[in-house]
């Protein structure tokens, strides 16, 4: 079975019903994707499949055959949102942060999201440390800077098109 992982083709011999989360963490050794509940409630295992955010604990790996999977490692630490999460203290303990960042990328096509847009985009991701406000500040600042920054557009698009 093949799929594209962070821009590179991969082949897996995992059982088709193996959780995508386990294939990523144990077989591919990409541990940035976290397990918080194993039932799709917390969103810590969020990854992008063909640009859509999903809980990788609920997805059998068979379902991503031929698809493009992006994990937090696929952003290469260069996405402006990653730095903003640290600068705005949107990350405290950090365990929800990779999933939050990926879920927030859903707002990439929304040049001027409202606070309600941000809350809706992140409603599937739990954070127990921040009370979410600092996360909103990080995401809104990212969109505001992307809106005004000349180099922002190609960089933002990186997650989707790798």
């Amino acid at each position: 079975m093949r799929f594209t992982l962070n821009g590179l083709p991969v082949e897996t011999n995992a059982h088709p019903m193996a959780r995508l989360l386990d294939v990523l963490r144990e077989e591919q050794r990409l541990t940035g994707t976290k397990e918080g509940c194993g039932e799709g409630e917390c969103g810590a295992c969020t990854v992008l499949v063909d640009g859509q955010s999903v809980c990788s604990c609920l997805v059998p790996v068979a379902q991503v055959e031929g698809a493009r999977v992006t994990t937090i490692e696929g952003l290469h630490g260069t996405h402006p949102l990653q730095k903003l999460f640290m600068d705005e203290v949107g990350a405290q303990c950090g365990i929800c942060t990779p999933g939050m960042v990926l879920a927030a990328l859903a707002l990439e096509d929304n040049p001027v999201p409202t606070l309600d847009d941000v809350r809706t985009a992140l409603a599937g991701n739990l954070c127990r440390c921040t009370g979410y406000s600092a996360i909103y500040r990080a995401v809104l600042k990212w969109r505001a800077e992307a809106d005004s920054g000349p180099h922002a557009a190609p960089e933002q698009a990186s997650a989707r098109h790798k």
Binding site: I72, G77, Q82, V89, G94, T97
Partner: peptide, 11 residues
């Protein structure tokens, strides 16, 4: 800047 660096946001 937090001493945690960027590690929490990069996984």
């Amino acid at each position: 800047s937090r001493k945690d660096g960027i590690g929490k946001a990069t996984g």
